[in-house]
């Protein structure tokens, strides 16, 4: 049977692999390793899809290496299929892959949108960051040094997922990369900033987890009443700014 399952090709200036995710989604994958260049490709396509849609397209999800486009096959067939008979061997996946290939061929060589820089205030250490002493000790650093290193880097938001508004951040300095805790905590409060291996991140909602907790932000990352419902989006740059406990309390009180 000569059906489409996976296409690898050059589209204009880009190389990409198109593969179905079941019967109602297609993934466009740009590379095999997580890196800045692949991330830029992901962003380019995501930006393009903000302004270009096909009938039946529901939404798209950017990830480390790929963008997945979800659609309703019935609507996609009606919109892209020139009135093809739904019963007669129609192939909406191939139609959507064709459309995506056309879009890829139109993309420029670099993302157009300048990334926004978001500053996240963090009260480090103390009861809001109970693992800071352990992280410092593990690297032979003082707590102040860990804070300084953590707050001096620029972090890239590769994608959101795991929890609503949770950003996968790249760029944690290796000097403070720390393995997860051996025993996960049952509940970590929303806003907690943690380190797990070479990742750092902020818990948007209370969840169980094994991260090393080094501080907490008073700013909400998940905004269920806003659109978009998240403080960050893929492609953004994040910087952490140390704040005092007094400022933390003041900002948190102001939110209520």
């Amino acid at each position: 049977m000569n059906e489409w399952s996976e296409k690898y090709g050059k589209y204009g200036v880009l190389e990409a692999k198109l593969l179905p995710l079941g019967d109602s989604a297609v993934t466009v994958q740009f590379g095999e390793t997580i890196c800045r260049q692949t991330h830029d490709r992901v962003r380019q396509l995501a930006e393009h899809l903000e302004g270009h849609r096909f009938a039946g397209m529901i939404e798209y999800v950017p990830a480390f290496l790929s963008v997945t486009v979800y659609f309703d096959p019935f609507e996609a067939l009606a919109g892209l299929g020139d009135g093809a008979d739904p019963s007669g061997g129609a192939d909406p996946l191939a139609l959507v892959a064709g459309w995506l290939g056309d879009q890829l061929a139109k993309l420029e060589d670099a993302p157009q949108r300048t990334p926004s820089v978001t500053e996240i205030p963090v009260c480090y250490g103390g009861e809001l960051g109970p693992d800071l002493p352990e992280v410092a000790a593990a690297h032979g650093l003082s707590e102040e040094e860990v804070v300084e290193i953590h707050a001096s880097a620029d972090y890239l938001v590769y994608m959101l997922g795991f929890a609503p508004g949770f950003a996968y951040l790249g760029g944690l300095p290796k000097r403070i990369a720390t393995p997860r805790r051996r025993t996960p905590r049952l509940s970590i409060p929303a806003g907690t900033v943690g380190i797990a291996g070479d990742q750092t991140g902020v818990y948007p909602i209370a969840t169980p987890g094994g991260w090393q907790l080094i501080g907490r932000t008073p700013d909400p990352l998940f905004l269920p009443d806003a659109m978009p419902p998240a403080l960050l989006r893929a492609g953004d740059i994040v910087r952490f700014r140390p704040i005092s406990r007094a400022e933390f309390d003041r900002r948190e009180a102001a939110r209520r």
């Binding site: 049977m1 059906e3 179905p20 019967d23 096959p73 061997g89 192939d91």
Partner: peptide
């Protein structure tokens, strides 16, 4: 099943 079969079943159901 093949992708084509999965899609065929989907379209029949939606119809």
């Amino acid at each position: 099943v093949s992708w084509r079969e999965a899609q065929r079943l989907y379209l029949i159901r939606e119809n």
